[in-house]
Computed example of a mutant assay.
Amino acid sequence: MSIYTGRGDDGTTGLLSDERVPKNHERIDAFGDIDELNATLGVLKSSLADDAVESTRQISRIQSDMLKIGAYLSAWRDAPILERLEKIDDTDIRFMETAIDSMEVGLPPLNGFLVYGGHPCAAWSNFARAVCRRAERKVVGLSIELKVGRSPRHMKYILVYLNRLSDYLFLLGRKFNCLTGLPEDIWKS
């Protein structure tokens, strides 16, 4: 089987719900950013030390959640396939909040804005956070488009999840700098 089909040569792409839309459609833009976030998380995960077992496990789960979000965003809201997809729910939000709470416990208070950098894993965490915020903005735009009728409940979970994920990635960057003994670079105006 060949990777190329030629069906997108006209500038359109197929959705999971079988419609074809232009490749610059806001739905494609939103789940494209989710895909980029997933790839960035993969780079972050590949940069972790072998003993970072818990962070590796968490990021793997988050990557799986990105696939759930991408699949959900790639179908129109009334598409029958949506009923068969695994969706983001309260369990996923609690997972994220528990991970955030556990990371926060070991970190010193933050007394200013950070200049990102430090350990490579911290830098990748903050890069992933920035990609996450962009994806979140695109999903918010898509959510507004969907409110022509009633915004699906699942979209609200996705928005909460992405908001928590950016907090998680911010704290993960701080954690990596703390674990490696690198001082946080506080911005001085």
Rank of each mutant, 00 (worst) to 15 (best):
R84V: 06
Y116R: 08
S151P: 02
L85G: 10
L142K: 00
M1F: 03
T40R: 01
L165H: 07
K175Q: 14
L169T: 04
Y4K: 07
G8W: 11
M1V: 10
C132F: 09
A128I: 12
A71S: 13
D35A: 11
S47F: 00
R20N: 13
T13G: 15
W76D: 13
G8I: 04
K23R: 07
G32A: 11
I59T: 11
M96I: 13
L44H: 00
S74Q: 05
L82A: 06
V139S: 13
R153P: 05
R150H: 08
L169A: 07
S151D: 08
E86K: 14
G106W: 07
Y4W: 04
W124R: 10
S17R: 04
I34P: 14
F31E: 04
Q58G: 05
Y168T: 02
H154Q: 13
K87I: 13
V160G: 05
R153A: 01
D10Y: 08
P22F: 13
I28L: 09
G149L: 12
L159K: 10
L16S: 14
A135Y: 14
A130N: 02
L182S: 07
S55C: 01
D101C: 06
S46N: 07
H154G: 10
L107G: 10
L48C: 08
D65N: 14
R129H: 06
Y168R: 04
F95N: 12
L82R: 15
I62Q: 06
I100V: 14
S189H: 09
D51M: 00
T12Q: 09
Y72E: 09
G6Y: 05
R27C: 07
I88M: 08
C121Q: 06
W76L: 13
L67F: 15
T40F: 12
V43M: 10
K138E: 15
Y157H: 14
P152I: 06
F127N: 10
I62C: 03
Q63Y: 14
G8V: 01
P22A: 11
S143F: 00
R7G: 08
S102Y: 00
G11P: 05
L85W: 11
K175W: 11
I100S: 05
